[in-house]
């Protein structure tokens, strides 16, 4: 009997097989990544770009409008707004990323375990997610902030407590549907243990969707960080943060509106960038 030929037409990307080719044909991903990369690069290289320190006061040059010397003007204490804005990005983006790591992993794992094993494990995990979801996020933050003091730590603790829920819900549903698929059944008949099937077979299949959710969740988290800063129970001054910047600028909204508008715009900019990356990744993986 002759060997079966592999039909080249079945390679559905045509001659754009490479991952780069596929990324190139996903404009949302490109634009989102570019926008986010600009922000990250600025945050990394700000000490070399700006001659000022974020907390460097210059009371003789307070509330100046944008100029060549101060690209975005200065605030009420004469601090350079652009410098503060980018240093604030350092703080906020760092917290945003770090606070997602543990919830992402635990959520993914619990979701897969619940979806794969079902029965009482599923019941317990579902009960847990339903319980946590019943508490408003900000209420928990405020309680934790009072217990552990305001600042970064409160955000991390709160997010470890509640951040995993969204990932657990998504992966549980996906895993339960993969559980019905025949490739899972054949892994079982091959005698592979459950935990190996979860990590080796199911994880690569739920990861794309989970990462897309991660992107949108990060936007939500960023807004939460900024809101807490604005309310005064998040990042504490003098550490620069977009939330505290918005709240500080509020008193001068009629005379120097850019003090609040610029950090507000930064939040919107980051949100759009991450959403575009999320959409783009979803598109990219759908193309398969």
């Amino acid at each position: 009997m002759k060997q079966m030929r592999i039909d080249p037409r079945l390679n559905r990307y045509g001659n754009r097989t490479s991952i780069f080719g596929r990324i190139w044909s996903t404009p949302t991903l490109l634009v989102g990544t570019f926008m986010f990369a600009v922000l990250v690069l600025l945050a990394v290289f700000i000490p070399f770009i700006s001659p000022y320190q974020p907390s460097e006061q210059n009371l003789s040059a307070f509330l100046q409008p944008p100029s060549a010397k101060h690209w975005m003007g200065t605030d009420q204490l004469g601090r350079d707004l652009f410098t503060r804005l980018i240093y604030a990005a350092r703080t906020d983006l760092k917290i945003m990323v770090l606070a997602e790591i543990i919830p992402f992993c635990t959520g993914l794992f619990l979701g897969m375990v619940a979806g794969y094993y079902g029965k009482w494990l599923d019941t317990v995990i579902t009960l847990l997610t339903d319980t946590f979801i019943a508490f408003p996020f900000y209420l928990i933050v405020i309680i934790v902030a009072f217990a552990s003091g305001a600042g970064e730590r409160g955000i991390y603790i709160t997010f470890i407590l509640v951040g995993w829920i969204v990932f657990a819900r998504v992966t549980r549903g996906l895993t339960a549907s993969f559980r019905q698929q025949e490739w899972v059944a054949s892994a079982q008949t091959l005698g592979l243990p459950g935990i190996r099937i979860i990590l080796r077979h199911i994880l690569p299949n739920v990861l794309p969707q989970a990462i897309v959710v991660l992107m949108t969740d990060m936007v939500g988290l960023l807004v939460a960080i900024v809101t807490l800063g604005y309310l005064g129970i998040g990042i504490t001054p003098p550490t620069p943060d977009w939330g505290t910047m918005i709240s500080d600028g509020q008193s001068f909204i009629t005379t120097a509106w850019w003090l609040s508008a610029v950090p507000g715009f930064a939040v919107v900019y980051t949100g759009i960038a991450l959403s575009l990356v999320g959409d783009g990744l979803a598109d990219l993986w759908r193309k398969k």
């Binding site: 490739w183 054949s186 892994a187």
Partner: peptide
């Protein structure tokens, strides 16, 4: 199994 689309892990 029956369904050739689902019998192999796509990843």
């Amino acid at each position: 199994f029956q369904n050739p689309d689902a019998s192999l892990n796509p990843k």
